[in-house]
Amino acid sequence: SEDEASARDYTRTGADTCLRCHDETSEFPVLEIFRTRHARAADSRTPFAGLQCEACHGPGDAHAGRVRGDEIRPAIPYFGPNSPASAAEHNEVCLGCHRAAASLEWPGSAHEASDTQCASCHRVHARRDPVMATATQTEVCLGCHVSLRADIYKPSSHPLRQGEMACASCHSAHGSFGEHLLRTAEVNQTCFDCHAEKRGPHLWEHAPAAEDCRLCHKPHGSNHPALLTRRAPQLCQQCHARAGHPSVAYTTAGLPDKAANAALLSRGCVNCHSQVHGSNHPSGANLSR
């Protein structure tokens, strides 16, 4: 580790040693870092105010030294192909400076437990780190969460593929106190950040809506309007079967070319019971006012 490295393990000329090979024509070009805030010598916290490339990559003398024709060049200690450090050791390099910003919820989080590295998501050398921009972040996340890629193309979805929202709009990749790395400890509080009109509390509550939005909605994408898991009347009839119209088996007899049925067409049950998120009307007991 860096603690055990002695002064002679470092290169003799620092970044100048590295940049002899790692110019724009190399397999691993690095010069774009000079267009980032990491390369600000006037900021004493940055790598280029100190050990330059080796502040993050570790002592590089062995890596930069001469190798014979049949020898394999030793790997750079951190952030390089075949670097021997573990995920946690890699992350400690970043957290050495970024502990205040990124590590409070990190211990024990899902990404830490799965040995995710900071560099798995962040591109430190890029002028604009794609994961830090709303328009490009989703693509970074989908690189690992491959089964979610199809969701953003579903007929009803949040505007992620258009770059107007990103995974971090709802999730906190650095850890959280809620489930599924949601930004807030409660599911609904995450939703209310954008959908504050649903917060209430209402005079007449619809308990599932107050409990967990996901009981009726699939936030990653759905085949039904408004990200619903299913559509009315079937969705409503999974919880409402009182005598009368809630219990009726609505069949194709209610399609437009037959006896067009209000419970089936247009908005289904919501054609009358529009206050599915709760009502503040004193006569809103059945969520129709």
Partner: peptide
């Protein structure tokens, strides 16, 4: 590493001129 530099326990930086650094 910054601590190393500050404490003088790190490498000799007198030749670390960053001549190729395209700030």
């Amino acid at each position: 590493s910054s601590a190393e530099v500050e404490s003088g326990s790190g490498p000799d930086l007198s030749r670390w001129r960053c001549r190729f650094c395209a700030f």
